[in-house]
Structure formats: structure tokens, C-alpha cells
Design a protein around this nucleic acid. Structure first.
Length: 434
DNA sequence: TCTGGGGTCCTAGGACCC
DNA sequence: TCTGGGGTCCTAGGACCC
């Protein structure tokens, strides 16, 4: 009898993904400090990182650090496509692939060794194929658990492979900074530092009750078990989304009724479209209002029937935002509005919105009611699918001035839409808005 | 000049029911 | 009329991740 093979998990993480894709597409960018974005750095090449440029930084801050920094617009459709191709390479070795973002995935290759060789061989094959067939560098960590594999891939960057054998897990983890533990961010890191915890080894030597006291019961327990290297989470092929949201930064604006209505219509439209495209609807509608100084409040409402109709979402969201604003009368400006729909359920064949509409509030004359809303949405979705995302829209959305949102982010959010010619209807709407 | 957009999970308190 | 115990659902806020 052969011994039972130890579990082997790969974590594959593309290096500086957006920036690397841009360098792949445009050879003149290769070897140069460059970033995707403009007002904000979405991703920085390794050449830029050596100057201290990091994702999330403001564009101007990045320029201070690296005066020669080149900014390019993102090609988000290409990111999605190339990310998909990398995942497809992983799937050639095992069906057990858990994608956790556009550029990152776990693969359980425990059962694949008979076909493809040892985990280290598989990892090398993945890296070679991604390099040769797609043209990108991917770092890979290989270990017995997801957490170890993920830590290993971080250590492997850039363009490396780190294999953690079962007998060396402790010696691998102990000297690493706590920041590499999944779930330790700036806040936890600061709290841990206060009691002298710097490394994962320090963390592992700290009693769970101390960590629970410091970070809360849930976080403390989770951290203890990860640091003690007890990670039993399986690679899960697909988890359904638990929420769908959209947000829009506004600068500092006076929260007029018109601004709230227009922005929430725009956001509800995006969320509604994605819900319907995914065949789902949600019962809980949450909004977030951010005031100057990053203070923010959230308001949520759970309704008896799941909704996905744009107009219904808009009305509920406007009401929630209006309530939140009324409770903060001293705030002069808002800097962001957001909507999120959770408590998701698979959408029934027909929208069951009638009970909600019986509330009958907030309807403008001529606004579609009840089941008509679902029909209208489906109609507009179909037109958009054929003619592009801006072909039709609710008047208030088409007329809205949402151009403050950086182009890159909007393209990311709207990457499924065609970039073809702007239909006449849309031009009229825009020029009509003055 | 503090920053963009899309998510997940956890906690604490309250309402409500049995 | 008040008390005790237990469960579920909802809301608001926060930390964290990519």
C-alpha cells in the first residue's frame, strides 16, 4: 500500500498584474517605471516599486517618489482575458481551482501527482506555460495548506517558486513578519506591535486568549489557528457572490436631492444590471454616505421580496441616503455614495415586485410600476447587450454628470461592454445636458 | 490634496418570538 | 405583570482583501 499523499496546494499570483500586462502589450514600456492609473495608482511595475511607488497611492505622491514615472490607461478587458487564460492553465492540472481575484488562485493538486508528477513539477510547469504561452510572470507557492501556500507565493515574488515541505513549515513561518498572515492589516499589526509581536513565530507563541482579548474573539481565534499552522480550509471551486455593490466618489459636494437622486440612479443601474445578468436579486439594500474626513455612515433596509429592478433599487437607496443625511445635518459635504445589495437569492423566473410596489411611495408620474419594471429592465439589458452599455438608459442616468469617476475605474466596472461607436441617443443625451 | 472601486467577514446591540 | 433562557433576524460599524 502506498502511503496517502499529503495534501498539495498551489497558490498562483501574477506579478504586478496590470502593469505587467501593459508592458506585455507595449514593449516600449518594458524595463521602465510605469503605473496604471492617473489620479490614483492602480498598479505599479517593479521598476516603479523600487522607487517606493505602491498601488493605492495618489498619482501625485507617486510622481514625487519617482519623477520619471509613466502613467498609462488600463486595458481592463485584456486583464480579464489574460487572467482567465492563466486560470485555464491551472485547470489543465486539476479541476479543483479556487479563483480569489482577477490575478490569483488556489489549486489543489493532491490528486494530480500520478498524472503530472510531484507538486513542485506541476508548479514549475504552470510557471513555464504562463510565461511561454501568455507572456506573464506568475509566482507560485506550494504547501500543505492554503494559508502556507499563499504565504509562500508572497515570499516567492517576484517571479519565483517557493515550496514548503511538511517538515519545514515551522521554520519557514516563524521568522516572517505578521503582516504576511492572511487577515492581518495595518490595524491588527499596530495592536500586535504594542505587545511586542512582530513575527509569525511571536504570534504562534502567544496564547489564543491574549489574542482574542486584543483583537476580538473571532479575529483572535482565526489568527491563532493560522499562526499555529492549523488551516483546514478546502479549496472551493465556486462560491456564489454574497453581495453586489457599486460606489462613486464625488469629490466634496453639497448633498442636494438632485445629486443624491442622480448618483443613486446611476449606481442602482449598474448594480441592477449585474444582478439581472447573474440571475439573482437581493433582499437587503445598503447605502453608504461618506462625509469629508473619511467619516462614513451606512444605512440598510431588508425588504420581504428580493429585488433587482433598477427603479426599485433607486427609490429604496434614495430613501436610505436621505434618511442618513437628515441624521447628520451638520455635515456640509459628502465625498462618496455607495449602494450594495445582499441577502442574495437566485432570481425567480418573473420578478415578484408587486408587494413592494403596493407601498406606492415616491413614484413619479409615468414611472413604470410593478412587473412593468422587470420587463423594462430586461428590455434595456437586451438592447445594451447588442448595442453596447450606453445605448439606452434611464433619462436621469444618461443625463447625469458622472465624469468625475476616473476613467480607469469605470472601465473596470464596465469591462463587459463593447467599446464601439457611441450611439446617437447617447450623444443627444449628453449634449442636452449642457 | 488622503485615495479610487468591488468585495468578505465579524461584532454588538436590539427587536421579536417561543 | 415580570422573569429566565434560547433562537433568529436585522442594523450599523469596522477591519481586511484584491
Amino acid at each position: 500500500m502506498a502511503p496517502v499523499a499529503a495534501a498539495a496546494i498551489l497558490h498562483a499570483d501574477l506579478d504586478a498584474f496590470y502593469a505587467s500586462v501593459e508592458q506585455l502589450l507595449d514593449p516600449s514600456l518594458r524595463g521602465k517605471p510605469m503605473a496604471v492609473g492617473g489620479s490614483v495608482v492602480l498598479a505599479a511595475s517593479y521598476e516603479a516599486r523600487s522607487f517606493g511607488v505602491q498601488g493605492g497611492m495618489s498619482g501625485w505622491q507617486a510622481k514625487q517618489l519617482c519623477p520619471g514615472l509613466l502613467f498609462v490607461n488600463g486595458h481592463f478587458d485584456r486583464y480579464q482575458q489574460l487572467g482567465d487564460e492563466v486560470i485555464a492553465v491551472l485547470r489543465d492540472f486539476t479541476p479543483l481551482v479556487e479563483r480569489i481575484s482577477i490575478d490569483e488562485a488556489f489549486a489543489d493538486v493532491t490528486g494530480s501527482v500520478h498524472l503530472f508528477g510531484a507538486p513542485s513539477v506541476i508548479a514549475s510547469s504552470v510557471r513555464r506555460r504562463v510565461r511561454e504561452e501568455i507572456g506573464l510572470a506568475v509566482s507560485v507557492g506550494v504547501a500543505r495548506t492554503k494559508h502556507l501556500a499563499k504565504v509562500a507565493s508572497q515570499v516567492a515574488k517576484p517571479d519565483g517558486l517557493v515550496i514548503v515541505e511538511a517538515h519545514e513549515e515551522r521554520s519557514f513561518l516563524d521568522p516572517l513578519p505578521v503582516r504576511l498572515v492572511w487577515g492581518v492589516g495595518p490595524a491588527s499589526q499596530a495592536r500586535l506591535a504594542e505587545i511586542g509581536i512582530q513575527t509569525i513565530g511571536d504570534l504562534a507563541r502567544t496564547s489564543p486568549s491574549v489574542l482574542q482579548h486584543l483583537l476580538g474573539r473571532g479575529a483572535g481565534t482565526k489568527l491563532s489557528s493560522l499562526a499555529a499552522n492549523h488551516d483546514e480550509r478546502p479549496v472551493q471551486q465556486r462560491r456564489p457572490a454574497r453581495s453586489v455593490g457599486a460606489q462613486s466618489a464625488l469629490g466634496a459636494r453639497e448633498p442636494t436631492a438632485a445629486l443624491v437622486r442622480t448618483t443613486m440612479a446611476y449606481l442602482a443601474d449598474r448594480v441592477g444590471r449585474r444582478l439581472r445578468a447573474g440571475g439573482s436579486a437581493g433582499r437587503t439594500i445598503s447605502v453608504r454616505v461618506r462625509f469629508a474626513g473619511m467619516r462614513s455612515v451606512t444605512r440598510a433596509l431588508t425588504v420581504p421580496v428580493a429585488v433587482s429592478a433598477t427603479l426599485t433599487l433607486t427609490e429604496l437607496a434614495v430613501e436610505l441616503v436621505t434618511t442618513a443625511l437628515a441624521e447628520h445635518p451638520r455635515e456640509r459635504h459628502i465625498t462618496l455614495l455607495a449602494i450594495s445589495v445582499s441577502n442574495l437569492v437566485a432570481e425567480p423566473a418573473l420578478q415578484l415586485q408587486l408587494p413592494l410596489d403596493l407601498q406606492g411611495d415616491a413614484h413619479r408620474p409615468g414611472a413604470p410600476r410593478g412587473a412593468a419594471r422587470g420587463a423594462l429592465d430586461r428590455c434595456m439589458d437586451a438592447v445594451r447587450e447588442r448595442f453596447g452599455g450606453n445605448a439606452v438608459g434611464y433619462a436621469s442616468v444618461a443625463l447625469s454628470d458622472q465624469t468625475r469617476v476616473p476613467e480607469a475605474f469605470r472601465e473596470l466596472a464596465q469591462r463587459h461592454e463593447s467599446s464601439g461607436a457611441t450611439p446617437p441617443a447617447d450623444r443627444r443625451a449628453r449634449s442636452g445636458s449642457g
